[in-house]
Each structure stands twice: as C-alpha cells, then as structure tokens.
Design a protein around this nucleic acid. Structure first.
Lengths: 217, 217
DNA sequence: GTGTAAAGTGACTGACCAGTCAGTAATCAG
DNA sequence: CTGATTACTGACTGGTCAGTCACTTTACAC
C-alpha cells in the first residue's frame, strides 16, 4: 500500500538539504520555531518526515541551518559594488548603498529571518550573534566606510560614521519590517509604495548628514 | 497530602488577574506563545494551573490580554506632558518627547511586548493592529505634532512631519531592541550607555530636521 | 537479469501539555 | 458552630508531535 504519488524518489540527495531548508524557512516563518511541524515542512518539500532526519539531526539543528543558510545565501546576492566607481562622491556611493540595502532588506527571506531572530533571541544568543556579525555588522561596515569617506572629504558633517550607519540600518530594517504584507504597523505607511518610502528614508538620511554651513558673518 | 506551602489561598480574587498577567508576560517573553507552559506561568504567579482558567478562558486569550494590559498599563505611565510648557520652542519640546519616549521604549515590559508582537504578527494581525494603534500611532501623533509645529515656525526644515516621526520611531525602537541585555546586535553598541546612545539618536534627529540655510549670495 | 547499497518512507512510541473537573480549603452569613 | 458559597487545587485525559526504525523503493554494478 505504498503509493508515492509522484514517483520521484531517490532523486538527487544533493538537492535535498536545499529543498528542505527552503520549505523549513517558509513553515518556520509562518509558525515560529516551536509551532512549526516537521511533517508540514516535509510535505512542503515533497518528501516524508523521516527524510529530514537523514540530513538534519533534529528540529533545532534544522532551524539553525535555516537561519545560517538563508543569511549566507542571500548575502552572496548582495553584491554592493562600490569598486565599480571608486571616485564617485560619497553621496553618490551612499545612494547606491542605500538602494541596494533597501532591496535586500525588503525581500521576503530576509524579513522572515529577521523576525525569527528577534523571536528567538532569548533562546539562541549565538544565532543572534551570527546574524549580527554576518548581516548587521557587514552592512554597518560598508555604509560606515562610505560615510567616513564623506566626512573626511567634507561632503558630510562631522559625525561618528558607524553610529550614523547604525541609525540608517535601524531606519531601513524597521521600515522593511513594518511594510510587510500584513496589517500595517503605521498609519499611512501601507499607502506608500516601496519607492516612496525609500525616498523618505533617503531624504531623511541625506539631511542628517549634510554639512553644517560656516558662519557667514 | 495537600500542603499549600504558603497557606495563602483564597487571597484576593481581585488581584489574581494582575498577578497572572505579570507572570505570563515573563514566561511568554522567555519562551514565546507556543513554547510557554501554563504550569510555569501558574508557578511563577504562586498559584495552581487550574486557577488560571478561572480568570482566562484559554492560553490564547491570556496571551492577548497580556499584550493588551501591558500596553495599556505602560501607556498610563507615559505622561508626556507638553501642555506644561506650551510656548517652548519645538526643538525643546521635541527633546522632552524623545527623552520620555526613549525611557518608555527601553523598559523591559515594552521590549518584551514588542518582541512578542513581532514574533506573532503572522498569526495575530489584530494584535498587531491594536499594538500599532495604541503605541506606534499614539507616539507618532505626538512627535509628528511637535515636528509639524516646528516646521510651521521655520524651526525645522520643510518635511512631512509624520514621515519624520516615523523615522524617529524606527531609530528609537530598534535601538531599544538592540540594546537589550542579550548579546549585542551591533558592534560597539553594547559598550555605550543608554545616555550615550540617546545622545546619538538625538544628534541624528536634530540634524535631519535642522533648516536649510537660505542661499546667501 | 541478480545482488547490493543508498535513499526514502510512514506507522509507531513516548513525552509533553492544554484544558477539565471532582474534590478540598477558605470565607462568610446567620 | 453550621451550612452554603466562593476560590482554588492538581491528578487526569486526550490530542499532538519530535524522533525512530523496520521496511520499501530506487539505482547501479556486474
């Protein structure tokens, strides 16, 4: 009495981990770590529950890998390429950074991972650390570096560059979270397109960094 | 064989709901909605599990009440009193707002509630809505109002006041979350005192709002 | 073909826990 | 002091699910 409906068994044990992780991200994203059922993850991946245990020792390990892999995988695609135009003004470079960063943060996998990390930060301090090191610190260094250059050139006002970068990250990440497909977190926010919100973020950032004029008298 | 260790039974059915909610906030905060055990909540409240069901119909209802009551209770203490000094400059009023807001957001109950709301936003859109209306929108209106006045007086540059207020909220809330007792989310952030971080937030905000100088030529 | 190893399955088990309820203890009215 | 009422208790039940494992299926070598 064993009908495997699709007749696809033993198809590529190399792809399994990836399939499982993808399905797991969705289910964990919907139900959280504790609420997710391994059976559902298996079903969404098109395999049986037991198969998961061929590739991951237990639920918690699977969860950790979901976070790790999603972060790593997404980062590879975030190729903020500043070397293309190393002599551009800091303002132009910062613009490019912010635009890419905004795209990155708005993608569903990123948002899901951030939510999961925030949810579980009590129980998995090491995951928070990993996430923080790979995503936040990396972004911070990139943006902070550009700001530092701008400050040095007098393009931006004097400010601690990495503190400023932190402010930008906070604004961007939170707006990405708040703009999710769910109920709007803020009045008027769900009426705006991502591009309009980006314009607001950009505007605020630029004005916070613009130089202080010399006293003319 | 019934030792109730403290011999305090039937003591104040009026206080029970509050006791239970307080214990529940802690346990939910540590383990999330699904992971929290009602038995643990009962123990922390110093009562038996069954007693919870005298006051709340089930776990989910208890969770909802935890969020509702914590938000409402905390808001009562957030008496941002601008009427005391209605003629102060917008900058001074904004300073007062930000300081109070920062204190409010940094308190443990607020941080726990925010984390829980973010964790469960998939499953409880109505809770998100409640939270958003009571906390975020309220804060937004207050701060947005002050900024609007500042813009009208020429104290601040022209900017959509509620968008600006949203930027401030994003910065403040995220920094409060990141500064938690857990592992630091950002390098260098855990080395700073709350006051220092507040100074950075304040500095960034002020410069983002400062007026654009007239062209002198 | 036949045999063997690798990959996958899903019924099963044991732990866990939300929610129940028969019973116990405190309190109070008369 | 007695009986009635209200507050509380915690052993128990039924359902759920992580994790296991004896078995089936596929792939591949010869």
């Amino acid at each position: 009495m064993s009908f495997t409906c699709d007749a696809v068994r033993r198809r590529a044990p190399d792809e399994r981990p990836h399939q499982i992780l993808e399905a797991a991200l969705e289910i964990f994203g919907e139900h959280g770590l504790v609420g997710a059922r391994l059976e559902d993850i298996a079903r969404r991946a098109g395999i049986a529950k037991g198969t998961i245990y061929l590739y991951f020792p237990n639920k918690e390990a699977l969860f950790r890998e979901v976070i790790r892999q999603t972060v790593i995988d997404r980062l590879d695609r975030l190729a903020v390429d500043l070397s293309a135009d190393p002599d551009a003004s800091a303002a132009v470079q910062l613009d490019a950074c912010m635009a890419q960063w905004w795209n990155y943060l708005r993608a569903e996998p990123y948002r899901t991972v951030y939510r999961l990390v925030v949810s579980e930060l009590q129980r998995f301090p090491d995951l928070v650390e990993f996430y923080s090191a790979e995503v936040l610190t990396r972004g911070n260094r990139l943006i902070g570096g550009v700001i530092a250059r701008g400050v040095a050139h007098g393009e931006f006002r004097p400010i601690e560059p990495y503190a400023a970068a932190r402010m930008l990250s906070a604004m961007f990440i939170t707006h990405s979270l708040w703009m999710g497909p769910n109920q709007s977190f803020m009045p008027t926010l769900h009426e705006l397109s991502p591009d309009q919100v980006f314009a607001q973020l950009r505007d605020f950032a630029c004005h916070a960094l613009r130089p202080i004029p010399e006293p003319t008298a």
